[in-house]
Amino acid sequence: ENVVSAPMPGKVLRVLVRVGDRVRVGQGLLVLEAMKMENEIPSPRDGVVKRILVKEGEIVDTGQPKIELG
């Protein structure tokens, strides 16, 4: 899985990584606000952040790609 998608609709509060960052499985990639709760979205695997496809403040839909890992 190279693309991390939104598990639920919500607002991107914070992006916790930058392009080029090495990430580990379970590491937080971003914080999504859904139903007035903050949810940290974890990396599904070890890898390197290739692209960030969302911006802080953006509203995302379920299944929308957010971060691409290499």
Rank of each mutant, 00 (worst) to 15 (best):
A6G: 06
S43V: 03
R22G: 07
E40Y: 13
V12K: 01
A6F: 08
V4C: 09
R24S: 11
M8H: 12
I52N: 01
E33V: 11
E38V: 12
V31Q: 02
R24Q: 11
K66E: 15
M8W: 15
G47P: 01
I41R: 00
V12F: 00
P42N: 10
E1L: 14
E68G: 04
R14H: 08
K50M: 13
K11G: 01
G47I: 01
I41G: 02
P7L: 11
D21R: 03
A6T: 06
S5C: 15
S5I: 13
K11E: 03
G20C: 12
K66C: 15
A34W: 15
G20Q: 04
G57C: 07
V4R: 03
L53A: 03
D61H: 14
A6W: 07
E38N: 09
P44K: 05
K66G: 15
P44C: 07
D46H: 08
I59M: 14
V15Y: 05
L16S: 03
A6H: 05
G28F: 10
V3F: 15
L53D: 04
L69C: 04
V31N: 00
E58A: 08
A6R: 03
G47C: 06
V31Y: 03
R51D: 06
L16F: 05
I59E: 11
V25N: 09
P9S: 12
L29E: 01
G70C: 15
L32S: 00
S5N: 10
R14E: 06
M35H: 13
L16Y: 06
N2W: 15
G57N: 07
V4L: 08
V4S: 03
M8T: 09
R51P: 03
R51Y: 09
V54Y: 02
R22D: 09
L13G: 02
M37N: 09
E38C: 11
N39D: 05
V12A: 00
M8N: 07
E68K: 06
E1R: 13
I41Q: 00
V25I: 13
R24G: 08
P65L: 09
P9Y: 11
I41P: 01
I67F: 07
R18L: 08
M8G: 09
P44S: 05
K50W: 11
I52K: 01
I59H: 12
G70R: 12
P65G: 10
M35F: 14
K50D: 06
M8Q: 08
E58V: 05
L29Y: 01
V15Q: 01
T62K: 14
G70E: 15
V23E: 01
G47N: 01
K11H: 05
L32A: 00
R18E: 11
L16G: 00
N39V: 15
E58Y: 06
G47R: 02
N39W: 15
V17Y: 00
L13K: 10
I41C: 10
M35P: 04
G63P: 02
E68C: 14
V60C: 09
D21T: 07
V23L: 03
L13R: 04
V19W: 03
P44T: 07
G28H: 08
R18W: 05
N39P: 03
V60W: 05
N2E: 11
R22Y: 14
L30G: 00
V25C: 12
L32I: 14
D46W: 07
E56P: 12
R45Y: 14
P9N: 09
L29G: 00
P65V: 10
L53C: 10
K36Y: 12
Q27M: 08
V60D: 02
R45Q: 10
K11Y: 07
V23W: 03
D61I: 14
S43C: 09
M35I: 07
G26F: 05
L53N: 05
G70I: 14
D46Q: 07
N2Y: 15
N2V: 14
I67M: 09
A6Q: 04
V54L: 02
V19C: 08
K66H: 15
E56R: 08
E40V: 15
L29W: 01
V31I: 14
Q64H: 09
V3E: 05
E1P: 13
V31K: 03
A34P: 01
S43Q: 01
I41V: 09
V15L: 13
L32Q: 01
V12E: 01
V31W: 05
G28K: 10
M8P: 04
V23H: 02
G10Q: 05
